[in-house]
């Protein structure tokens, strides 16, 4: 019931490929064809050189926790039955950082620097969210 009101990403021109890949359980990042840098979140120009040329790169999805917080108060009613949960920033070896959740473990066991690997959580018929589990 609460799932109905959970905020679900609305793919746009920048992110449609990313979300389609996530639906296939793939984590993808854009890599600039000119300067070679990876970027996240998806966007039409490279923030390092403004090139519009890029390719999608499939990530192994193995990263480390850069920081995390255990959320005890739900931001909206949709999250009420989930608290406490881990909101984290995950660093990936491509050099990008993303916000996500660390799931599949006791929130009290999460530590900064902990290795994590990507998983996917279906939040609607179209959208699967990349989340992370301890390795």
């Amino acid at each position: 019931m609460s799932e109905q009101t959970r905020p679900v990403p609305k793919p746009d021109r920048d992110s449609a490929y990313y979300w389609a890949a996530a639906r296939r359980r793939e984590l993808v990042f854009q890599q600039c064809n000119e300067c070679g840098q990876f970027r996240f979140y998806p966007r039409s120009v490279c923030p390092f050189c403004l090139s519009e040329k890029f390719e999608w790169h499939k990530s192994l999805g193995r990263g480390a926790v850069y920081s995390f917080t255990v959320i005890h108060r739900a931001p909206t009613p949709a999250f009420r039955d989930r608290v406490p949960y881990v909101l984290a920033l995950i660093d990936l070896p491509e050099g990008v950082r993303m916000m996500s959740n660390v799931i599949g473990c006791d929130p009290g066991s999460v530590q900064i620097g902990m290795p994590v690997t990507v998983d996917f959580e279906e939040v609607s018929d179209e959208i699967s969210l990349p989340v992370f589990r301890p390795e």
Binding site: P9, I71, L87, V131
Partner: peptide, 23 residues
């Protein structure tokens, strides 16, 4: 972008961001 890449994870905004910095 935050509506796609932060809010869906249950970011308790703005407290979540400051908690991440504090941690």
């Amino acid at each position: 972008p935050a509506a796609q890449f932060e809010t869906p994870y249950g970011d308790l905004s703005p407290i979540g961001a400051y908690a991440l910095a504090a941690a």
